[in-house]
Design a protein around this nucleic acid. Structure first.
Length: 470
RNA sequence: GGCGACGUAGCAAAGUGGUAAUGCAGCGGUCUGCAAAACCGCCAUUCGCGGGUUCGAUUCCCGCCGUCGCCUCCA
């Protein structure tokens, strides 16, 4: 069985093949940097990071392009509100987001193109659509002529007729059809603008992605991704533009992640993240409290296509899951390299590898892949208890790290901030407490352990001595 | 109103036409001076509700109820 991917375009799960052997061309819609990034943005980035890592694990070379929509209505509005330059604001927020992606262990994309760096290509694209009769200019705006595309609506599963009946397209006398959408917007005073054959203006929302995808990956790509909220109109319009211009099928697989939603722990009601509800969880605030692996576990625990519910309980549960995974990396306590326990461990490693692969091949079933990791952790811990050590034990731990790595888990939570400084003091207390234990002064020893626990330091006495962690 | 998705143990969440992974929490045991961690065992006769197809359905079909997404800016 090889990799199968669910394709929004066909609404079926299909075997994955690429245009060019061994290479995957993948374009993922990135963010519009107009405000702080929240964990919904991070979810999408992590989902496609896992897809990319798995494709690479399968031996593909992945060309992964993620854009920044660094000029659009929201950026301009937000900048005006702050009294700042729009492009300066979006550039600053984009850099901030890139830093957060690094913190989340998201592999850097092959390129992060921006609208403002793609203006000539966008203008050429729009001109091509005008020349071929798929677009028209009016008053400095350019619109895509939806009626010129007989396939329009194929991604989102709706017909043009359906769309025009009963929906709220605004009536604009300059548009031939209410469903026509802007490719180029004439500049209004004070807005960023570029010269074009239709006068000064800026690109519409959808054209940039088509242009950037073509610029960086060519006319046809393998995977186009983004959040499920982008299916209509954004991706529908991208298909219309690109296929009208080239006459070729634009993307072979359309992959969409479900939306992250908040569940209010008190009312158990689902809430949208919104400023007015005051419940926006930013990437920065999440990472202040939890390790990046915790976020990744939350995302990996369910299907990328389903809506993901988030609240603090779920974060805490996943923090404990991470602790559990980490127990598999505790050092061996014995040195036995043969015997039934060693055989069992080797078998568990083989099973974990096979089950991991089978799960991920099935449309990136990360929850199933995680289950394989947890089973491997149990096998490793059992083996440790049975005295297994040496090369077989190391090999099993390496397998655990490797598989976790395919999912982008670091499994090495770094102590936050300056906490590392306390190590010598904690170790001193541990040493004193162990002297007390030897002297059977258990009341005092327990007091030391209890007081340290209150300070957030956990002590665990094992056969190898005392282990402490924050 | 239109299009679409989902509803599995206390929580989260996989999955299959032949009788339910995994993690957290909980319970019992081993280990420990006591804990913790680890390990062993237990924890859904049942997969929103009602019909239908089938030898057999949680899995397929229909209806209902509920939740959510999109249709307007959104990852």
């Amino acid at each position: 069985m090889s990799l199968q991917i669910y394709n929004t375009l066909t609404r079926t799960t299909e075997p994955f093949t690429t245009l060019e052997t061994g290479v995957v061309r993948m374009y993922v819609c990135g963010v519009t940097p107009y405000d702080e990034a929240h964990i919904g943005h991070a979810m999408s980035a992590v989902v496609f990071d896992v897809i990319r890592r798995y494709l690479e694990h399968c031996g593909y070379r992945v060309q992964h392009i993620v854009n920044f929509t660094d000029v659009d209505d929201k950026v301009i509005a937000r900048a005006a509100q702050l009294g700042r330059d729009a492009l300066e604001l979006s550039s600053e927020l984009a850099e901030e987001f890139l830093a957060q992606l690094r913190a989340l262990n998201v592999q850097p994309a092959t390129a992060y193109p921006r609208v403002t760096q793609t203006i000539p290509e966008i203008i050429a694209f729009v001109q091509g659509l005008i020349d071929s009769g798929h677009a028209y200019a009016t008053d400095g705006d350019v619109y895509f002529r939806v009626a010129s595309d007989p396939d329009y609506g194929k991604l989102s599963g709706r017909s043009l007729d359906e769309m025009l009946v009963g929906t709220r397209f605004e009536l604009d006398p300059r548009k031939e059809s209410p469903a026509d959408f802007a490719l180029w917007k004439a500049a209004r005073p004070g807005e960023p603008a570029w010269e074009s054959p239709w006068g000064p203006g800026r690109p519409g929302w959808h054209i940039e992605c088509s242009a950037m995808s073509m610029k960086h990956l060519g006319e046809q790509i393998d995977i186009h991704g983004g959040g499920s909220d982008l299916v209509f109109p954004h991706h529908e319009n991208e298909i219309a533009q690109s296929e009208s211009l080239t006459g070729k099928r634009f993307a072979r697989y359309w992959v969409h992640n479900g939306m992250l939603q908040l569940v209010n722990p008190k009312t158990r009601q689902v809430e949208k993240m919104s400023k007015s509800l005051g419940n926006v969880v930013t990437v920065a605030s999440f990472l202040e409290q939890y390790d990046a692996d915790v976020f990744r576990l939350i995302v990996l625990s369910s299907s990328y296509r389903s809506p993901l519910t988030y609240n603090s309980e779920i974060a805490a549960d996943n923090a404990r899951k991470l602790e559990r995974l980490l127990t598999g990396l505790q050092p061996a306590s014995g040195a036995s390299e043969e015997g039934p326990a060693v055989t069992a461990l080797a078998a568990a490693v083989a099973t974990a590898n096979a089950e991991f692969r089978a799960a991920m091949d099935d449309d990136f079933n990360s929850a199933g892949a995680l289950a394989a990791l947890f089973e491997l952790v149990r096998a490793i811990n059992s083996a440790r208890d049975a005295g297994v050590g040496g090369a077989p034990f190391a090999a099993a731990q390496r397998a655990l790290r490797d598989l976790a790595g395919v999912l982008g888990l670091r499994l090495s939570p770094r102590p936050k901030g300056r906490r590392q400084d306390i190590a010598p003091f904690v170790e001193l207390l541990v040493e004193v407490r162990n002297e007390l234990r030897k002297a059977r002064q258990f009341a005092l020893a327990d007091m030391v352990r209890g007081r340290l626990a209150e300070l957030g330091v956990t002590l665990e006495d094992g056969p190898q001595g005392t282990h402490w962690k924050l």
